[in-house]
């Protein structure tokens, strides 16, 4: 599948933004550590900003961005519509959550409900984003059990590193439990990706040129002799992206290193008293690596996906 840059930016940014909102709301709800109001306000406000940039980016690949509001109407059947609905709804609790740090309220139970709603809507939006891909029967590499967990884990992972970085910048302190949580998420993300790659490499599509045309049999192969046109059709341009495949091994290695292993090492170093560099600098390096890794992971997610329609255009398997 052709990796649309706007969609990669959208899924990675909104994943990180919703991830950090969900974790921040959980910290507040369970009172894991005392949140400085200024830190709470800025981290939730910046998270919402990141989500907003992602959502705006996602509309730029549309043929008619100004009609985007119509996408909120078909939540009964469409995961894309559900994603839009949750994305819009999440602004309500997340906005109140953000402002609540500045205006102290005596009604703690209301804040608790706001925290829970923020967690639920943030995770639901990322869940729906992943389901858009995971629900497509036409693409074996997307119609996979691990797609939704990986989207959620990477979103939480990037979001947690972001929260930890802001903690070192705004409060000048660290909360080691957060570091250990990030290390756990990073390890799970890396292992899940390895398991995913192993799984898509070792399974086969039920569809092939024989089922696509109905012409083959056990002793008769079916292969394309002539394409319908001399140039590339929309389908070939959209679904037939193959540039990355020959580099996929190397790109997978880069993904695991930058998304998982390097950030884990840096964040572990931050918990050690011997660190020579300030935690803030280490935090910045960690988030640069993890976000770069997320972009490569998302790009590969598209580039390695093979659409069954390509069976009509010369692909021997998908």
């Amino acid at each position: 599948m052709h990796p649309a840059f706007s969609v990669i930016i959208f899924t990675s940014l909104s994943g990180a933004g919703y991830g950090s909102l969900a974790i921040l709301a959980a910290v507040k709800y369970f009172d894991f550590f005392a949140l400085n109001p200024l830190y709470g306000f800025f981290s939730s406000a910046i998270s919402l900003l990141i989500v907003t940039v992602g959502l705006i980016s996602s509309t730029t690949h549309l043929g008619h961005p100004r009609r985007a509001w119509r996408a909120l109407s078909q939540w009964r059947s469409s995961w894309l519509s559900r994603e839009g609905v949750f994305a819009v709804l999440s602004y309500l609790p997340a906005g109140v959550f953000c402002v609540s740090f500045l205006i102290p309220t005596p009604f703690n139970s209301i804040i608790d409900i706001i925290c829970l709603l923020t967690i639920a809507f943030s995770l639901a939006t990322v869940f729906c984003t992943a389901k858009i891909y995971a629900s497509l029967k036409t693409i074996r590499q997307w119609n996979h059990l691990l797609v939704v967990p990986v989207y959620l884990i990477i979103g939480l992972f990037d979001g947690a590193i972001f929260l930890m970085l802001l903690l070192t910048i705004i409060d000048g302190l660290q909360f080691f439990q957060l570091n250990y949580f990030i290390i756990f998420l990073g390890a799970v993300a890396g292992l899940a990706k390895i398991l995913y790659w192993w799984s898509i490499d070792s399974t086969q599509s039920q569809s092939n040129t024989s089922t696509a045309t109905g012409l083959g049999s056990s002793n008769k192969s079916v292969s394309m002799l002539d394409a319908p046109t001399t140039s590339e059709t929309f389908i070939m341009r959209e679904m037939g992206f193959a540039i990355a495949r020959k580099h996929s091994r190397r790109l997978r290695l880069i993904t695991i290193l930058t998304l998982s292993i390097i950030p884990i090492i840096i964040i572990f170093l931050m918990t050690q008293p011997i660190a020579l560099v300030s935690p803030m600098v280490l935090g910045i390096i960690a988030i640069l690596f993890s976000y770069f890794g997320t972009i490569i992971e998302r790009w590969l997610f598209f580039a390695e996906a093979k659409h069954v329609a390509m069976l009509y255009y010369g692909a021997s398997k998908v």
Partner: peptide, 9 residues
């Protein structure tokens, strides 16, 4: 679109 396939070898 009209595709052309070779069936068998």
């Amino acid at each position: 679109r009209v595709h052309t396939f070779e069936v068998g070898k």
